[in-house]
């Protein structure tokens, strides 16, 4: 593995840099947007304990997003460019994490967490030997924090599914979220995806990770009396049209982006010097 190690951020070739970027943007955006939705649960979860758990998880996901965005800042991007001034259409998260939920739909929160954190565990595992050390030196810390999230989600799913009404709600959330969750294993761009593997950034193709993910999530849900929308012969449901990643986002994303950039825009915090300023806009 050391033979193919990539150099530090300043010495990458253009192609290497773009490839690392494609990978990291996906990781960062997923965590960032997921956290935004989680924060809606603070002071609204079923109990004070679950309020705290969800707050904790949101805090972790924001922390992970910051860890990934840090790597992009090493390439010269500013936080403003990465979060506040980026065209919402250019965000590469799976639409799965941007979907809103009905007030009180706690089944959505815990199922979303379970599906995401299981995917995250596999995805991080496949990055443990990545050829870019700036990625690998973060994996251990993030994985450690994620394991608590999975435990929390699984415990809640078990408790909810012990109750007939609870199980119905988990089933409804599964029908709605499962097809969208598959997009977590969609590439942002097929050429970049090929390069991600060729440069030794990710040890396994996304399709294999998706298969492993199904082999974990489908039987687990089944054990709770919840059916994932997968046919007998293992055929997966079709990806929704607006699934994020390489495709368009749902209409919920621009609305969310508008909200989360509101103060930034109102305070006109746009004077941060940017290194990639467009010469056309120079005075």
């Amino acid at each position: 593995m050391t033979a193919n190690q990539l150099p530090g951020p300043d010495e990458l070739t253009e192609r290497e840099r773009k490839t690392v970027e494609a990978l990291v943007f996906g990781l960062a955006d997923d965590e960032f947007v997921l956290a935004e939705r989680y924060t809606e649960w603070q002071v609204r979860a079923p109990t004070l304990e679950s309020d705290l758990a969800l707050s904790n998880i949101a805090q972790d996901e924001l922390g992970h997003a910051r860890l990934w965005y840090d790597l992009l800042e090493e390439f010269g991007y500013t936080e403003s460019e990465l979060l506040f001034e980026r065209d919402p259409a250019e965000f590469t998260h799976a639409a799965f994490v941007e979907l809103p939920f009905e007030e009180g739909d706690w089944a959505d929160a815990v199922l979303r967490g379970y599906l995401y954190d299981t995917a995250e565990q596999l995805r991080l595992g496949a990055l443990e030997d990545a050829s870019y050390p700036r990625i690998t030196d973060r994996i251990g810390k993030i994985t450690e924090e994620e394991s608590y999230h999975r435990e929390h989600a699984q415990n809640w799913l078990e408790r909810l599914c012990d109750d007939p009404e609870g199980r119905e709600n988990v089933q409804a959330a599964t029908d709605r979220l499962f097809p969208h969750a598959l997009a977590l294993f969609e590439p942002v761009d097929p050429d970049r995806e090929a390069a991600i593997q060729e440069l030794g950034l990710r040890s396994e193709p996304l399709a294999d990770l998706r298969e492993q993910w199904c082999a974990i999530t489908v039987p687990f849900l089944d054990s709770l009396g919840v059916r994932a929308p997968v046919s007998e012969d293992g055929t997966l449901p079709e990806l929704p049209d607006d699934h994020g990643r390489s495709s368009a986002h749902t209409g919920h994303w621009p609305a969310l982006h508008e909200e989360l950039t509101r103060t930034y825009r109102e305070l006109d915090r746009t004077d941060t010097p940017t290194i990639t300023s467009d010469p056309d806009h120079a005075q």
């Binding site: 007030e103 009180g104 706690w106 089944a107 408790r159 109750d163 609870g166």
Partner: peptide, 17 residues
């Protein structure tokens, strides 16, 4: 209203495991 909307989950939690 927010508390009411998650009452069902609290109920599920109260059910003996």
């Amino acid at each position: 209203a927010a508390q009411d909307a998650v009452a069902w989950a609290r109920k599920a939690l109260d059910r003996p495991h």
